[in-house]
């Protein structure tokens, strides 16, 4: 229950600054429109009705959904944790009868909830995911859950560098660039030559490219299971890093400002 309150607060914080939320959504919408028009021109002039197995109308949905996913999979926990370490307020959090990581997860969930609802509605109404039998639907839900958890763990693991770095702001453009390029936000990774096929199982691609293809019904059951396996693998790696780095970070933490 105490964590549910965190989730509610985070949601309220997102909705409280409506002006900024609307402008951010507008910016995303403009970026998506630009990419859509460019791709439609590419389809038009290449004379192809299918690029890497994706038709023009599917490309439109792909670009919208992958950008919604980019909003869901934010890197905000890194900057929140860095603020706690730098101000020394982490000491206060550590003294509370809560698990910081669980609280951070619910905060992450609350902040992304409006966008998760959009993705959920799109999955329910547009996607064929729930019309391909119980096993397929369950596997899809499992992949979504695993990927969400994996990405949160990965971002949390990265946030631990705040124990040693004074400024972590450079990570913001780096992670945006990684999501653009490796996550399939700029273009579906499937349009790249086959030599780059291995890229689709990187954590950013699982979160952006694979979950979008899942919604479009482009993944077979085997591909879902393979992507799920990779998500689980990355989650284990992130968890391992957390287990190893957290105690060392806490030892080097000086609690300045507390």
């Amino acid at each position: 229950m105490k964590y549910w309150l965190t989730c509610q607060n985070a949601l309220m914080a997102t909705l409280a600054y409506r002006g900024n939320l609307v402008l951010n959504l507008l910016t995303t919408a403009v970026n998506v429109m630009v990419t859509i028009f460019m791709w439609l021109a590419v389809y038009n002039f290449s004379g192809r009705s299918d690029i890497a197995g994706i038709q023009p109308n599917q490309m439109v949905i792909y670009l919208i959904v992958v950008n919604v996913l980019a909003l869901i999979f934010s890197a905000e926990p890194i900057f929140k944790f860095s603020g706690l370490v730098r101000s020394g307020n982490l000491s206060v959090v550590l003294m509370r009868p809560i698990n910081y990581f669980i609280q951070s997860f619910w905060d992450y969930l609350g902040r992304g909830l409006p966008f998760l609802v959009i993705y959920g509605l799109a999955t329910g109404f547009i996607s064929p995911v729930f019309r391909r039998g119980l096993l397929y639907a369950l596997a899809s839900l499992l992949l979504m859950g695993l990927t969400y958890g994996m990405f949160f763990l990965m971002i949390t693991a990265i946030s631990l560098c705040s124990f040693w770095l004074v400024q972590v702001w450079p990570l913001r453009p780096v992670l945006s660039a990684l999501f653009l390029l490796l996550g399939g936000q700029a273009f579906p990774l499937q349009v790249l030559p086959p030599t780059f096929a291995w890229l689709i199982y990187n954590p950013f691609s699982l979160a952006g490219n694979q979950l979008t293809l899942l919604l479009l019904g482009k993944l077979s059951l085997n591909q879902i299971l393979l992507a799920g396996g990779w998500a689980l693998g990355w989650a284990v790696v992130a968890l391992g890093i957390l287990k190893i780095v957290w105690p060392r970070g806490i030892r080097s933490y000086e609690g300045v400002g507390s």
Binding site: M38, W39, A41, V42, F45, S46, G47, R48, I51, P170, P173, V174, A177, L180, L181, A186, F187, V191, L192
Partner: peptide, 28 residues
């Protein structure tokens, strides 16, 4: 770092442009 990020995003635009034109020699 700021200079590097500028170069990074410019490089992404170049790569994305390369992807567009890998399917067609001209657009409009």
């Amino acid at each position: 770092l700021t200079a590097l990020f500028g170069v990074l995003f410019y490089a992404i635009e170049l790569i994305t442009g390369g992807v567009y034109f890998s399917f067609t020699p001209t657009i409009y």
